Amino acid sequence: MAINFKKTYKFAVKSALYISLFSAAILAGMKFYYTEISWEFISVFTTALFIFSFFVLQYRAERFIYRRVKKIYDDVSLLESSSFRNKPITTDMATLTREVEKFARDKKIEIETLKVREEYRREFIGNVSHELKTPLFTVQGYLLTLLDGAMSDKTLRKKYLQRAEKGVERLIYIVQDLDMITKLEVGDLNLNYTKFNIVEVIQNVFDLLEMKADKKGIILMFDMKYIKPIMVYADREKIQQVVTNLVVNSIKYGRENGTTEVSIEDLVNNKIIVRIKDNGEGIEKKNISRLFERFYRVDKSGARTEGGSGLGLSIVKHIIEGHDEKIYVESKYGEGSEFSFTLEKTK
């Protein structure tokens, strides 16, 4: 590590001046008793003493401070701080204080980040365990009942096997979403950009989810009739998955006999924004910041009865950000929610 002294001239000059003035005062007092001491001698001696004192004090002060400062740098370097290892040593206390304070702030932020990640890891493991445990125990329960003697009853056997199959389907759904979210988080998105009509994609999603929406009396609709196609440049399959996840979410948490309305608006710089709005129960403000976390559910008790893997919004966020686009959430508790995302528009 290179040495870079920031000279402590001010300290050395003041100290040398005090010593010189004190010596000059003593010599001036001695002149009354020893007449052979001239003022010229006092002047020359004081000047020489000042210069000698200045250099000695400057050198000693730097060496004294440097040894202690170097020890601080060496101790800090043990913590693998690249900012300290790459910087030259300075004996300036103000500079050193700023660097140590910055180092302490960075380490505090790093520690807090690690704590958040550890808490997130524990919560994630707990959520995965719960999500997998519920369908597993369901399947196990039905199979054990059949093995314990219910196999002889054809009606009961068929009923329990169908329920076990639903549990297996949910397990497969969760594992597939986990596999996808893992790939998305490591950047393995493999986007296949093409030009396509976003209106057509949304209509396809409506057709696929029409029966699911009918069960709750929810109407899937556009805000207006889009006669002309609206062409965008993105991965069609991934964007259809985004729309599907958001519409499914609006159905799942929407009010019975309500609506899910989709609108498409032009933005600046060849962008459009797709808005998916429902008139459901809405989301409390405290929950909005965590909506896109894996397995996070606003209603911890009742949400799981609606099914799903709990990864839908997290997948949506990764896909949209993989396109270098933005996703937004607006919600008023008791009135409904609106999810929107941007896409690049093309001709």
Rank of each mutant, 00 (worst) to 15 (best):
M231N: 07
V56C: 05
R68Y: 13
Y33W: 07
E335I: 06
K70W: 09
A104S: 15
L189N: 00
E119K: 10
I37T: 03
I109R: 05
V116L: 10
P88E: 00
G217K: 12
D188R: 06
Y59T: 15
R117N: 13
R122H: 05
V175P: 09
I276H: 06
A48Q: 03
L171K: 06
F295E: 09
Y18C: 06
I320R: 00
I315R: 06
R170M: 11
T90E: 00
L57C: 09
G310Y: 01
V186L: 08
V248D: 03
L156Y: 06
A25V: 05
I288N: 00
F11Q: 08
V186K: 15
L17E: 03
I3M: 11
R117L: 13
A2C: 11
F32R: 09
M224Y: 12
D207S: 08
G334A: 04
G254S: 05
L78R: 12
K31T: 05
I283F: 01
N269K: 14
T138D: 07
K228A: 15
R170D: 09
D74H: 13
V316R: 00
H318L: 07
Y296G: 02
L209R: 05
Y253N: 01
S23R: 00
L144W: 14
D324K: 15
T91P: 00
K216A: 10
S43L: 10
L343A: 03
D223M: 04
K300Q: 11
F54V: 04
L178M: 14
T305N: 14
Q240I: 06
V298M: 03
I72R: 06
F341M: 03
R157W: 08
I174T: 00
K159Y: 14
L147H: 10
E237T: 12
V116F: 09
Y66I: 11
N86R: 08
K31E: 07
S20T: 00
T35C: 14
S15V: 09
F50Y: 04
Q240N: 09
E321A: 03
Y333H: 10
E123P: 04
L114V: 07
A104L: 08
I251C: 03
L246W: 03
A150H: 09
V76I: 14
S77I: 08
E36W: 02
Y253D: 04
L189E: 00
R60G: 08
E335S: 11
I218G: 00
F5G: 01
E119L: 06
A94I: 15
